[in-house]
């Protein structure tokens, strides 16, 4: 690989309950995201209602993380799409700046 062209993209890391995985991937598909990666069986701590404090690592509460790299223009629509969901359910979305070399895989020219 002689020519490495770096193109900037945004990375979205979406952490949510495992039972909503299909909803989230469906939403990403409809947004036109070309692909994503899913990491399973995460443990974690949050402040959502019920898991009363002493549970730091409860491995049966399955959390998943979906990682997707998207062009900047898609970030706002995707976040708008997830907004009503995260109003009712626990989870977070992290947005960071990344660079990729094979832009064509991510929907760019």
């Amino acid at each position: 690989m002689n020519n490495l062209n770096f193109s900037p993209l945004k990375k979205l890391e979406i952490i949510l309950g495992g039972e909503h995985m299909e909803f989230a991937t469906d939403l990403l598909d409809r947004a036109g995201v070309k692909g994503y990666t899913i990491i399973n069986n995460l443990s974690g701590k949050g402040q959502h209602g019920f898991h009363e404090g002493h549970l730091m690592f409860n491995e049966d509460d399955v959390l998943i993380m979906i990682i997707a790299a998207v062009p900047e223009g898609l970030v706002k629509p995707i976040l708008q799409g997830f907004a009503p969901f995260f109003n009712e359910h626990s989870g977070v979305v992290f947005i960071s700046d990344i660079q990729v070399t094979r832009m064509v895989k991510f929907g760019g020219a």
Binding site: F23, L27, R30, A31, G32, L74, K76, P77, I78, L79, Q80, G81, F82, A83, P84, F85, N87, E88, H89
Partner: peptide
């Protein structure tokens, strides 16, 4: 309809149907 709007309506329907 704008994409973001479209997705957020879809999301609203999903949450609304949960009960």
């Amino acid at each position: 309809i704008e994409l973001g709007r479209k997705l957020s309506i879809r999301s609203m329907v999903y949450v609304a149907g949960a009960p």
